[in-house]
Amino acid sequence: MNKKALTQQIIFWTFRIMSIMVVIVLFAILYFITIRGAQAISWDFLTKSPEEGMVKGGIFPAIIGTLYLIVGSLIFAFPIGVFSGIYLNEYLKDGKLKSFIQLMTNNLAGVPSIVFGLFGMALFVNRLHFGDSILAGSLTLGLLVLPIIIRTTEESLKSVDDSYRLASYAMGATKLYTIKKVVLPLAFPNVITGIILSIGRVSGETAAILFTVAAYFLPKLPHSIFDQVMALPYHLYVLTTSGTNIEASRPVAYGTAFVLVFIVLVTNVIANLIRNYFNKKYKA
């Protein structure tokens, strides 16, 4: 083997090993949380309120709270995101306005979540007097995931071949009718992936809900959209840093982390499956 080939072999193997190390890191995280977290999971854990200063009992109110936030934020972000994606891809021509809107959307995606929290507190909680509430938290989280939904919608519309649109026009259909009856149904499975990824993001987001909705401890479930709720990620934070007895509440913390990771894992797998299925079906 000559020197050139040898150098290449050494370098490629270095890259390979470093990539493997990245994979190991991921599995280390999953391992630590799954092994000890799975032991904490039981029917009671998922359906009971925290007890004895959050050392025992379950995380039911936090699961329900996170569900409320997922639904609340998507009710708001889903239509606006999809409409926005449609307008950007189907109506706006390439130009200054389009690139401005895309620049702003990408900027919004890059805003740190704690800044969303500050903004949500200033606008929804204080200025609009929603108080710490599901409404304020959902709106804040909705704005946070809006760029994800817009981007996936735009991309899925782009992947629909123009021949479908032209065929529809040739039949005498209007542009809006074509979008509704031809383009959207074809693109819809891919639009769904954006929503699924948003669910993963919303259920894990902490900094944005700290000052807009999250409650330290609430034994009862919310009655209206102006109530506070507990949420899984904030609950995990509380359990690990400021609980009444941090050591004793470790098993509950592992369990909560496990549920969070489980949600992210499932949403990611589903999103990937849909994407693969969709790509095979229409791009073959």
């Binding site: 994979v23 995280i29 894990g204 902490t206 990620p233 913390a253 982390a257 992210v264 990611n268 990937n272």
Partner: peptide, 16 residues
């Protein structure tokens, strides 16, 4: 796998 790494919530990273 890389995408999954991006999806894990930051509190879970903090906990880890």
């Amino acid at each position: 796998i890389i995408e999954l790494l991006a999806g894990i919530p930051s509190v879970v990273y903090g906990f880890f």
